[in-house]
Nucleic acid binder design. Structure first.
Lengths: 228, 228
DNA sequence: ATTAAAAATGGACAATCGTCCATCAAAATC
DNA sequence: GATTTTGATGGACGATTGTCCATTTTTAAT
């Protein structure tokens, strides 16, 4: 049962966190005041101090919550992916560009926090651990690809691929931030896979994309996975 | 001579703008108050209202100034570049990753403004026009490359290359923001050129980078430029 | 030198910020 | 049902915010 006491308590905590995120997404951090928060949450002024000990801690908790939500979503998506590394990469990329993850609300929140993160150490750490876990997931997959293929400088290639993929995703998010209307998810994905196909032609195909110019049309892309 | 009157006037305007940028870079936007600004500028409280009509306008002017500075630097660099499109691209990429452009101060300022840009329309526009002009510069170069090479879907390839390059640069900036110490400019450039070499093997060489895995080693990269 | 004009000063001002606590309401325990 | 315990309330509080203007200082014009 958990007790009506603690049940309400937790409910109000979540209401406050939700109110912060809504306000940050809509009005930005600088306009997210205590008055704004409690008005959105429909709670009284003292709640923030009671549950979080102050506004800063509440904002930090909200940043943490948002970060966890993002990562959990991505991880859940990854559960549904196949076992092959290329499938996992593809799932991460498409997931990170999907409506559920990449939308106005999330982008606004993410960039608002990041802009202030340099000062708020705690928030910066969430940024970091998120990126750290994501990087780990991607790097693992590329390491497997590289190992299977027996590339000469294996660790370097996997690292470059990881770095490039993350940078591209990051850039796409910025694109969305600045032009949410014109943004084209398919185009974004296509560009990233073009990059990956160039690095690992045996594992990623270009599908409908424009082929790079070549003299003799040397083996554009072999079929990717072996199983399923 | 320009008159000592107007000379001082302009000098103080610049002092205020500089103070805003210093403060934003060091303390972030939320801690950049009027008191903070006038203290840094060593001027009196009323100056902001006198010269800019209010804090918001001053901050906007500072954002504009920063944006212009960035773009002017890049354009100056471009003047020294050769005439071939690949040289121009290379100059833009290396310039955008150079110490002079990509440093802690600029990155902090840039992301601080961007985080708040959604609310401050004027600031967002600078973000936009900057990206617009940069995009134009890059797109022009890729269009020429694509035209010379007679790629089938020319406009699509040029657009994808532009989009990808900008996204990668954007991602690298974010990388620098989060990890200014670990950031490796050479690695960042190498990854971007790997992407470009994959799209236009006849125009961009991989140089010292790891080669993508291929079955038969089909023409990894022809020497790029023809002149000099 | 005297006057006119403009720039710079710094404090007054209302509004808003975030914090905190005396008080009240409700759930849990006896 | 009485009592204890804990959550919730909302106003008071000092600090700080940005704006604005009466005053002083400095430069330019006479």
């Amino acid at each position: 049962m958990a007790g009506k006491r603690e049940q309400n308590r937790e409910q109000n905590r979540q209401a406050l966190i939700g109110a912060v995120l809504d306000s940050v997404a809509e009005k930005g951090i600088s306009e997210t005041s205590v008055s704004e928060i409690i008005q959105r949450a429909g709670l009284s002024r003292g709640m923030i101090h009671l549950h979080f000990g102050g506004k800063d801690n509440l904002v930090q908790a909200a940043a943490h919550h948002s970060s966890e939500e993002y990562y959990d979503g991505l991880e859940a998506l990854l559960q549904t992916a196949g076992d092959s590394p290329q499938e996992r990469i593809e799932m991460i990329v498409r997931g990170d560009l999907s409506e559920r993850v990449l939308n106005r609300r999330n982008v606004n929140i993410w960039y608002a926090f990041r802009g202030e993160s340099r000062n708020r150490t705690a928030i910066a750490e969430h940024s970091d651990t998120r990126d750290g876990r994501l990087r780990g997931m991607i790097h693992n997959a590329f390491s497997r690809i590289v190992r299977e293929a027996g590339t000469p400088d294996a660790s370097g290639a996997a690292r470059d691929a990881t770095h490039g993929t993350l940078a591209l995703l990051e850039g796409m998010w910025t694109d969305f931030l600045l032009h949410p209307d014109r943004f084209d998810r398919e185009e974004a994905a296509r560009i990233i896979f073009r990059f990956l196909a160039a690095m690992f032609p045996a594992h990623f195909s270009l599908k409908g994309a424009v082929q790079p110019q070549q003299e003799k049309g040397a083996a554009p892309a072999a079929p990717a996975a072996s199983d399923s």
